[in-house]
Design a protein around this nucleic acid. Structure first.
Lengths: 246, 246
DNA sequence: AAGTGGTCTAGACCACGCG
DNA sequence: GCGTGGTCTAGACCACTTC
């Protein structure tokens, strides 16, 4: 591909240039304008054509390599990954994981309580055992079908939670609106057989396989602000991601 | 932390400077020399102290931010993430995922055959239906305990496989030794109830929850070179990873 | 106002793959 | 040998946070 590749950047925009370029390239790839296997022009030409410096151009391409859309090879060039399986699984969203499934999501609050943290939860949240934490249990449904049972703990010192908000807004939205700046999260994904309560809530047989996820999220100072354990119906949910060789 | 932080770089080494710095910082963090919550000096001072340019210093720190070890905040500074849960789960290894569990891993080859690709496998591998592919079934054990049942497909045109090699070396090692350069992989992780064969092989009850993983790996030209479906005993295996807000 | 990270530039040299 | 990506430099200006 040495063709035109209509792509423009707005140097006056507050959006970083490398981000504009990355977005434009990603759109071109996902739209099929740059089909799988297409060879891109070299970095310097591309940079010149957009009136950018090479480091800026490279930073844009770095993002797409990281996302698994481009493949670079020294001495050869850069190509669009040759596969249909590309999909959009960046793993970067710290928002609720369920947005992308389509359908009509709804959340029912099964429990909301303030209670003293047990040893395990206290350790995960980096607070003293006995310090008050919120305990939240929610059932997530799409189109009326149960999808996930979510149990979360949040230190009461960090924000305020109410049933009304939780039914509407998602835990992360509520916390973010109160000034909690999420930065990173550690996750563990496995499988577990449904216990009686989980089976009843999710509408499956006891012992049925469920996807189990534990997560601890941290704010911009690197301190834990939320931890949770979710179980998902295995027939309706799985985690997807892209690994990149570094 | 404005202390010395003994950290040196070797400008003559073939190892990139930013990688040396990232490695040194990571070691200092994991060893406890830089405890959770420690505030680092600013980027310019650090760069000067190591006789590096700021972009190089930043690139090193970028890696650790990406790995979830550091947290940056504009106008404030950079800190070591405040949590014990840090762990070493970069998700970067395209090697077999099982190395890190310790124990004595062993692999038994349950099947190795050349057969024409079905529609689904052909689509995943980007070959014509009916083209010959290897079908590999292996059982992975640690300390004699079954851990995973692995089923893989590889186009015969890409490399040669034998039972002897497979019992010894791991699929990826064999393929890499024959010039296949892995670059990225798409993975999907979920849960599934064990069928009769899986239950027998893994030593669990039929219907027991298993961790299910599907993966398609691609070479440096972005073409699929391997696809597989693995099931793991849920009590012995889970996937861990770190999400970073971008 | 001062200090921090976020972005960007315009060069440079090197290592690698290929013809 | 040539073209490619990989690395590195020495600056610059801006946006944001804190005091």
């Amino acid at each position: 591909m040495s063709g035109p590749l209509r792509l423009t950047v707005d140097k006056a925009s507050p959006v970083p240039l490398y981000h504009q370029v990355a977005q434009g390239l990603e759109d071109a790839i996902r739209s099929g304008e740059l089909p799988p296997g297409t060879k891109l022009d070299n970095e310097i030409d591309l940079a010149n054509r957009l009136n950018l410096s090479r480091p800026t151009m490279r930073k844009a391409m770095d993002q797409l390599v990281q996302a698994g859309l481009l493949v670079r090879k020294r001495g050869v060039g850069t190509q669009v990954v040759g596969s249909q399986v590309r999909r959009s699984l960046e793993l970067t969203s710290l928002h609720d994981d369920l947005q992308r499934t389509g359908g009509k999501p709804a959340t029912e609050v099964r429990d909301l309580a303030r209670l003293p943290a047990g040893d395990e939860i206290a350790a995960l949240l980096g607070v003293q055992p006995g310090e008050e934490v919120y305990h939240v249990v929610r059932l997530r449904t799409t189109d009326g079908e149960p999808l996930a049972l979510m149990e979360n703990w949040v230190p009461c010192s960090i924000c305020e939670l109410s049933r009304e908000q939780l039914a509407q807004d998602g835990l992360y939205s509520i916390m973010r609106a109160q000034g909690v700046g999420f930065q990173l999260a550690h996750q563990r994904v496995g499988a577990v057989g449904a216990d009686a309560f989980q089976a009843e809530q999710l509408g499956v047989e006891p012992g049925a396989a469920l996807v189990a996820m534990s997560r601890t999220a941290m704010d911009d100072l690197g301190r834990p602000v939320e931890t949770g354990r979710h179980v998902y119906r295995a027939d309706k949910y799985s985690f997807e991601f892209t690994l990149v060789q570094r």
